Simulated scan of single mutants.
Amino acid sequence: MSGTLLDGHDVVLLDLDGTVFRGGELVPGALEAIQEVHRVGVPVRYVTNNASKPDQAVADHLVGLGLNAERTEVSTSAQAGAAVLAEKLPPGSKVLVVGAPALESEVDKAGLVPVGEFADEPVAVVQGLYTEIAYRNLAEACLAIRAGALWVACNGDRTLPTERGLAPGNGALVALLQAATDQDPLVAGKPERPLLDRAVASAGAEAPLMVGDRLDTDIAGAVNAGMPSLMVLTGVSTARDLLEATAELRPDFVGADLRALHQSPSEVAIGEQSTWQVRVDSDSLELTTQTGEQPGDAVSALRALCAAWWATASGPVAVHGGDWHSQDVLRQLGLA
């Protein structure tokens, strides 16, 4: 399929929570968009920082939502964390697992020995989110890390999106151990490279495109890995977050949802827009409809605003609409 954002890419890396689904429901447009990616023959990898579920369970969940997903298309931070350990430790090394059974299984598959609390002198600690983690597990990890054990965190997400709102993520528990040990872990998941590199390698790809909803994990991970990225406005990060993002958090493209994959690159790229005019002051932006042009939509306005602001500054900025249509669009974006 020519003339779309997919052109020139040999794999699409898709974040899950907030990008493909929210809780037990697909994000609007996700089903059709992913089906079309499969139809045109571009491989898909579902890349998740969630270390609590095995790859087959993730694939089964996607199938239950109506997608055609295979276990081999899933890359988890548990797999990446175990791979980081295997690169640094001899086979058979004892690893204290602070996480779910899925993480224990990945450590075992990597040729290491997963152990629990009160194990004799583990040489490493691996930490992933698990709702059954108790104080004693964190205390054992603290003691092992202080004794010199290698510490790997599957991911550093401080929050976890749920149907009721944001709950504590693995990063919140990582921060607890950082405070208790005065040390920092190696991180396997986004925004660090191991998870993304592993997903790209599993597809034998050389020209990936990362797609996600979080600037601090999905987009920062793509920047760290040197790959282009598409941000979708269906999850955690907002239009204001994007507008005020610093350079290491900026995507190349932005779309309302995954259907942006099937628009032309020029249409979804962050840049000047023919339908919008943006005037930049030192601490504010004014958006107006371009004279003689059909009114543009909200996401195209966001692309124009980001291009103008990023070219001159970063950080907080006030945004004003110079006409009624611009004011309405800014309200839709939460920027008014």
Rank of each mutant, 00 (worst) to 15 (best):
M1H: 15
A124L: 11
L261D: 10
D218S: 05
T288P: 01
W310I: 00
P185D: 11
L249N: 10
F253K: 02
A304F: 03
W310F: 01
L195W: 12
A51K: 00
L62A: 05
L176V: 14
L150Y: 01
D108F: 13
L258M: 04
S300N: 11
G321I: 05
S314W: 11
I145Y: 03
T289Q: 11
R331Y: 02
G171M: 04
V174T: 14
W309D: 04
K94T: 07
E272T: 14
P168T: 00
V125M: 11
P228M: 04
S75N: 06
V44N: 00
T162M: 12
H9V: 11
V232L: 11
N137R: 07
L333T: 08
L305Y: 05
E87Q: 15
S237Y: 12
D7H: 03
L31N: 02
F21E: 00
P91V: 07
E36V: 02
T181F: 02
R22D: 08
V268Y: 01
A149T: 00
V58C: 05
L166T: 03
M231L: 15
T159K: 09
L129T: 01
A298C: 04
I270E: 08
L305N: 09
V278K: 12
L186D: 11
Q332A: 13
R198A: 14
V125W: 11
L89Y: 00
F118N: 15
S266Q: 14
M210Q: 12
A33Q: 07
V317R: 06
L160N: 05
P295K: 07
R198S: 14
A80D: 01
G322F: 09
S237G: 08
V268I: 15
L261V: 04
V107C: 01
V95G: 06
A269T: 15
G235R: 01
W324S: 14
V115I: 01
S266E: 15
V299H: 09
G204D: 07
D213Y: 03
E87M: 05
L176F: 06
T275Y: 06
E25H: 15
